[in-house]
């Protein structure tokens, strides 16, 4: 059991932020870390893929180009379905959020890689960005009418009850948006690490090594499941972003 007990094999060691290049800006520690490295890797992968694949700009797409187009159409349809044609001004934002979360999640599944989205501060920042845009755009285009969002169509007697509920539900949006993604990534990676750790521990435990293929098989199955979760959570994040943006664009039409 010695191999499983040291720090490097702790299930939470994979979430450690390690400084690669120390840097101080504006009085804060903004060191270039493994997290920053994987953010940059994700952005580089996405940009390289989307820009390279469209180099030909052919009418009959190449394989790479059609993949890029599938991504585009998929997100564009999600925005159109949830927000409508006026929502297309937010299309670059939703697309960036979707591919960023998706690629960070998927790259994080590579053994040894760091999962940017397993940190609550990252997912919270993205969620607050979305809610911030919803509030700013909603107030800018609808003014005080935007506050109608908190006043549902109910008998006036119920309003003292309903308005606080609506306010709490609105405030819980960034919370649920960020925690959902963070918790899914965190839990999935911990589970993977624990089961993968069993393989090593069992192999090191003499005769128990015979049953070591069992956690290995489980790890393989979990990896497939985590791939699904990685894609699904990116999609959920994008869809919920669209749903919230719909309030900013169309106001309260419950």
């Amino acid at each position: 059991m010695a191999a499983g007990a040291d720090g490097a094999h702790s299930p939470i060691a994979q979430f450690e932020i390690k400084s690669l290049v120390p840097l101080r800006l504006f009085g804060f520690d903004t060191s270039f870390t493994n997290s920053a490295l994987f953010m940059i890797i994700a952005v580089a992968l996405i940009s390289a893929f989307l820009i390279m694949s469209m180099r030909g700009r052919s009418l009959v797409p190449t394989r790479m180009q059609s993949v890029a187009e599938v991504f585009y159409e998929f997100v564009a349809n999600t925005v159109r379905d949830n927000v409508g044609q006026e929502g297309m001004k937010f299309f670059p934002l939703v697309f960036s959020l979707f591919v960023f979360v998706l690629i960070c999640n998927v790259v994080g599944l590579v053994p040894g890689a760091f999962t940017v989205t397993s940190h609550i501060v990252v997912t919270a920042a993205l969620a607050l960005l979305v809610i911030g845009i919803v509030i700013v755009y909603g107030v800018a285009t609808q003014g005080t009418h935007f506050l109608k969002l908190f006043v549902p169509d109910v008998p006036p007697a119920l309003l003292p009850l309903m308005v606080p509920i609506e306010v709490i539900s609105f405030l819980s949006r960034p919370l649920s948006l960020s925690v959902r993604l963070f918790a899914n990534m965190l839990a999935g990676h911990i589970a993977l690490k624990i089961f993968a750790g069993f393989v090593g521990s069992l192999l090191a435990a003499g005769v128990w090594g015979i049953i070591s293929p069992l956690p290995l098989l489980l790890t393989i199955a979990l990896t497939a499941l985590e791939l699904l979760v990685a894609v699904l959570q990116a999609y959920v994040f994008a869809v919920l972003t669209c749903v919230y943006l719909n309030d900013a664009v169309h106001g309260a039409h419950h």
């Binding site: 804060f28 920053a36 940009s47 820009i51 940190h119």
Partner: peptide, 29 residues
């Protein structure tokens, strides 16, 4: 602070590249 800073840098760069370069090209085609 470090995560927020680099998230702002990388996501900002991604948004710029998507909004200005990649998406208009794909949309055009």
């Amino acid at each position: 602070a470090s995560q927020l800073f680099w998230l702002a840098v990388s996501f900002g760069a991604l948004y710029f590249l998507m909004a200005r370069v990649a998406l208009p090209r794909i949309g055009e085609v």
